[in-house]
Computed example of a mutant assay.
Amino acid sequence: MTAQRACGVGDVAVSAALKVELDGIDVAIVKDSAGAIHAIGDNCTHGDISLSEGFVEDETIECWAHGSQFALRSGKPLNLPAFEPVPVFPVTIVGDDVLVDVQNPLNLN
């Protein structure tokens, strides 16, 4: 795994997202309502809008511009207008560090 530090665990609030760039890829680090941390592609597949500026609820993130929701575990859109998934990246927590492997997406092989 080629994971690298994306942020600290405490850098992301519950039900919020933080945009980071890793290897030239925009990634949204998201802490869902249960406190689990996810890493997904930051760009909405419908309108190239930053998902980290959207709304987090339970295990979903919603694009603020057009309302498409994406499942944080699978990257799949849950409603229109988006119909293509966003990449989901492996996350490892080591101490207070959130490590993300952007070279090996879990869902877009």
Rank of each mutant, 00 (worst) to 15 (best):
G10F: 07
A71S: 10
G24F: 02
L72D: 02
G24R: 00
V20Y: 02
S15N: 12
A28D: 05
P87E: 07
H38S: 08
S68G: 14
F70G: 01
R5F: 10
F70T: 03
F83G: 15
I29A: 01
M1E: 14
T92P: 06
L72I: 10
N79Y: 13
T2I: 09
G8V: 10
G54Q: 03
T60M: 02
R5G: 03
Q69A: 13
P105R: 00
D32I: 15
S52N: 07
E62S: 11
L108V: 09
E21G: 08
V12C: 08
R5D: 05
V12Y: 04
Q103H: 12
D11C: 04
Q103F: 11
E62H: 05
G95S: 07
I25D: 04
G41H: 00
A3E: 03
N107T: 06
A28F: 03
G8I: 11
D96C: 04
P105M: 02
I29Q: 02
T60Q: 04
Q103P: 04
L18F: 11
S33F: 14
V98M: 00
I37F: 12
N104R: 05
E21W: 07
V91D: 00
I49G: 06
F55P: 13
L106F: 11
E53W: 10
V14G: 06
N79H: 12
L78A: 10
L78Q: 14
L51Y: 14
E84N: 08
I37P: 03
V98Y: 01
A65G: 06
V56D: 02
K19G: 03
F83H: 13
D96I: 03
E84T: 09
D26I: 15
A17N: 03
I40M: 01
D48G: 08
L106P: 13
P77T: 02
G75W: 01
I49A: 05
I49Y: 05
P85M: 01
V86S: 01
G95P: 14
E53N: 09
K76H: 14
A65S: 13
G67W: 03
L99Q: 01
I93S: 10
V14I: 14
C63Q: 06
H66M: 09
E21F: 10
G47F: 13
N109R: 06
I93P: 04
V20K: 00
L18H: 12
C7K: 03
A3V: 12
N104W: 09
E59H: 13
P81Y: 11
E21V: 15
V100Y: 02
G8P: 06
A39D: 04
V56Y: 06
I40C: 00
A3R: 01
C7W: 06
S68C: 08
L108M: 07
A71T: 10
F83N: 15
S50R: 07
D26C: 08
V94C: 09
L22V: 10
C63T: 12
C44E: 06
C63D: 07
N107P: 14
P77Y: 00
V27P: 01
V56C: 07
P87S: 08
I61D: 03
A28N: 03
K76N: 11
L80S: 09
N79L: 09
E57N: 14
E57I: 15
G8W: 05
N104S: 11
Q4H: 08
D96F: 04
V12S: 02
